[in-house]
């Protein structure tokens, strides 16, 4: 589970290549609104997704600002860097607990998971890629 301000999301652990601490990112003028810049990682330039730009009322990352964790995700052949305020330890979830989205509103999560009293969106970063290709 990852958090960005008040947003709490689940993410399949197999997508995660690495979890880093704070890491500098660099703005790219003219970049997509939700992907404002890149980071250098493993001798690559990796696109940085700011989840706060996908949810109304969250405060986007400003130039020079970082979050305390940076996830590097493997999305198909691509990599995506996602800054987060926190990353929890891995949670085992029964696949029966995954349901089509009905309560949550995060745009890139067609499914959601009930954990105790809370329902959390299951983020599928591949949908970001698909929407970008289709744009």
């Amino acid at each position: 589970m990852i958090t960005v301000q008040s947003l709490r999301l689940l993410l399949l652990a197999r997508c995660v290549r690495e979890v880093l601490g704070t890491k500098e990112w660099f703005p790219i003028p003219g970049a997509r609104q939700e992907i404002p810049g890149v980071i250098g990682w493993g001798h690559r330039a990796v696109a940085m997704l700011d989840l706060a730009r996908l949810v109304p009322d969250l405060r986007p990352l400003q130039v020079g600002e970082q979050r305390s964790r940076l996830l590097v995700l493997q999305v198909g052949e691509s990599r995506l860097a996602v800054p987060a305020d926190s990353v929890s330890s891995i949670i085992d979830i029964d696949t029966d607990a995954i349901h089509p989205r009905s309560v949550t509103a995060f745009p890139y999560s067609p499914s959601e998971v009930r954990i105790g009293d809370e329902v959390l969106p299951l983020f599928e970063p591949a949908l970001i890629l698909e929407s970008a290709v289709g744009a």
Binding site: I28, R32, V38, A47
Partner: peptide, 13 residues
């Protein structure tokens, strides 16, 4: 030459 890193296609429309 090895320091030229392609900008990821995702970045731009």
């Amino acid at each position: 030459p090895t320091s030229f890193l392609p900008l990821p296609p995702l970045v731009f429309e």
